[in-house]
């Protein structure tokens, strides 16, 4: 059982073997990291004069912000209502549209050219932060919730589509073969052998997406795409810090609530 001792002379000192065995690589990484940090920090344009004013300004903002003012409750309510509507409609559209894109982007059921199209739509919509998409839609279709809905629809297609495509790629292929063996066409195969396998996941994903769309709908308003974000931006712009903090508090509360509900529903379904 005990193998013969490979070391005849007993080592009497011990040092912890280093994390990276090659000393060149080890010190190289450390040097590169330090040089990078110095370079990055040195090359960034900090406006120290302006920054030094920060502390008194912060004091002014926070003293102006407390206590938060709920006086213009109507405005707050309108903003949130619009955010909800944007989130709901965008989730519905996004989840529905993500199905065809997911089918297109699944390697195992889409032909190569279609696959490339599907993949690139998903990659592009995932690369852009929703706020960037929102600013473009605002430029194209004007201020208001329409831009918000379009933005979050695209955002949902990217996120749900990607996960769904991965799910389709991992389905039990036997069911597809069985359907094909009965002589079913492409669409019939999709509906009987593919969708039943991914639909439970899709319901959970929709709940998740509704939650993250609600979060995102609070920020796309900052660039003019409707919802509570616009209200917040205005409050900040007009130095109404007490109203701004009131909005922030409600945003946090709503997000926590929605996270809780979405988590609870997903637990129920899965």
């Amino acid at each position: 059982m005990t193998p013969p001792d490979p070391q005849p002379s007993v080592p009497r000192t011990w040092k912890k073997p280093p994390f990276i065995a090659n000393p060149l690589v080890r010190y190289g990484i450390i040097i590169v990291a330090v040089v990078y940090l110095v370079w990055a920090f040195g090359s960034l344009p900090f406006n120290w004069a302006r920054i030094s004013e920060g502390i008194p300004r912060a004091a002014r903002i926070f003293s102006g912000g407390f206590p938060p003012s709920f006086e213009r409750f109507g405005l707050l309510l309108t903003g949130f209502k619009e955010s909800f509507q944007i989130a709901i409609l965008a989730t519905l559209l996004g989840v529905l549209l993500s199905i065809p894109f997911a089918v297109m982007a699944a390697r195992n059921i889409a032909p190569m050219p279609i696959y490339l199209i599907g993949r690139s739509v998903i990659i592009i919509s995932r690369s852009f932060h929703p706020v960037i998409v929102a600013i473009l839609f605002v430029a194209a279709v004007g201020f208001g919730p329409l831009a918000g809905i379009l933005t979050l629809t695209l955002y949902s297609i990217g996120f749900v589509g990607k996960l769904l495509a991965e799910e389709i790629e991992e389905i039990d292929w036997g069911q597809v073969e069985a359907m094909r063996a009965t002589g079913a066409g492409y669409l019939a195969t999709l509906f009987y052998a593919v969708f039943p396998q991914i639909l439970p996941r899709q319901v959970g994903l929709s709940m998740y997406q509704l939650d993250s769309n609600l979060r995102a709908s609070a920020v796309v308003g900052i660039v003019g795409a409707g919802g509570i974000g616009g209200t917040l931006m205005n409050a900040f712009g007009r130095y109404d810090y007490d109203f701004a903090f009131a909005i922030l508090l409600i945003i946090i509360a709503v997000i926590l609530l929605s996270e809780g509900i979405s988590g609870w529903v997903r637990k129920k379904i899965w």
Partner: peptide, 13 residues
């Protein structure tokens, strides 16, 4: 939103 707050405090940058 954090950025909005910090821009208000420390100025753009």
């Amino acid at each position: 939103i954090w950025a909005l707050l910090f821009v208000a405090i420390f100025g753009p940058g």
